[in-house]
Design a protein around this nucleic acid. Structure first.
Length: 263
DNA sequence: AGTACCACCTGACGGC
DNA sequence: TGCCGTCAGGTGGTAC
């Protein structure tokens, strides 16, 4: 699930539920999700503090801890947040849980345990240390985007998904952006002209804005979206042709061979 | 530098 | 019904 729009939903969710509440207990039920921090350190840094505000960079969510530093959450393929009080609302694979003074809890659920939780000095320094590229939806302009992509010798889809180039785009939304921009996923990035790069940039903005409005729910996406039709043999919402499944750099994706012509 | 492939994990699904 | 292979929206390491 978690690409940029999903993480933005999680951010809003955390804002609406778990801010400004004193943390009573921190439960870590699986140490494998901890990144460069011990269970004890994480507990010590959170206990008695509160989360004050949030930031997002690409697929990473940060929550400012009162007193000092930030909590970092990355969701892998299957992570999500759940705020709850009663046991029956507890999700099934809770890896980390903060219990607040009023006994409400914020759970970080990670079925496949591919996500990571840690501490960061600041979202900005974290992004620099991890060599993350600029956030796809925050302060990046068409020209800067074009400069990032045109320097690459590989295919456009893996370039869009490269978090060190630009942060926030995953497999699903890379497909959607290229579909909207009518660009074949295997097009060499260096073959793209300014007009096409600008078209991809604008498609990216439009796709992420629509996804936010749809609350990242495929069923709520605009009619022209590929996202709810990620099946072989589904019909292209634009031309009615058959959607095709293709593998690009090891990941399977979907596209319309009629709308997205080979270069 | 890019890409393919494996690994990390768990669970769902289709075929036999 | 049950077993098995395959696949899943992420990322990092390794070998070409």
């Amino acid at each position: 699930m978690p690409e940029l729009p999903d993480v933005e939903i999680f951010r809003n969710y955390l804002n609406a539920t778990a801010l400004h509440k004193k943390i009573k207990t921190v439960r870590v039920s699986d140490d494998r999700i901890l990144s460069d921090v011990s269970r004890r350190t994480l507990q010590r840094r959170l206990k008695g503090r509160e989360l004050q505000k949030t930031r997002r960079h690409g697929k990473h969510l940060f929550a400012k801890i009162s007193a000092d530093g930030w909590l970092m959450l990355h969701f892998g393929m299957t992570g999500f947040l759940q705020f709850y009080k009663n046991r029956e609302s507890r999700p099934p694979h809770v890896a980390l849980e903060m219990v607040f003074e009023d006994d409400y809890r914020l759970a970080y659920d990670s079925q496949r345990r591919l996500g990571r939780v840690g501490l960061a000095k600041h979202p900005q320094t974290f992004a620099v240390e991890q060599n993350l590229g600029p956030d796809a939806m925050n302060g990046l302009g068409s020209t800067a985007f074009g400069d990032l992509m045109s320097g690459k010798s590989g295919m456009i889809k893996p370039a869009l998904m490269n978090q060190k180039l630009i942060a926030g785009i995953g497999n699903i939304y890379a497909d959607e952006i290229l579909f909207q921009a009518k660009v074949h996923p295997k097009t060499p990035a260096e073959d793209l002209g300014n007009a096409e790069l600008d078209r991809i940039f604008r498609a990216m903005q439009q796709v992420f804005e629509a996804a936010a409005e749809a609350r990242a729910d495929p069923d709520e996406m605009p009619d022209g979206f590929l996202l709810p039709r990620r099946r072989e043999g589904a019909y292209c919402p634009r031309c009615g042709g058959k959607i095709e499944k293709i593998k690009v750099s090891g990941r399977s994706g979907y596209m319309c061979p009629d709308c997205q012509k080979r270069p």
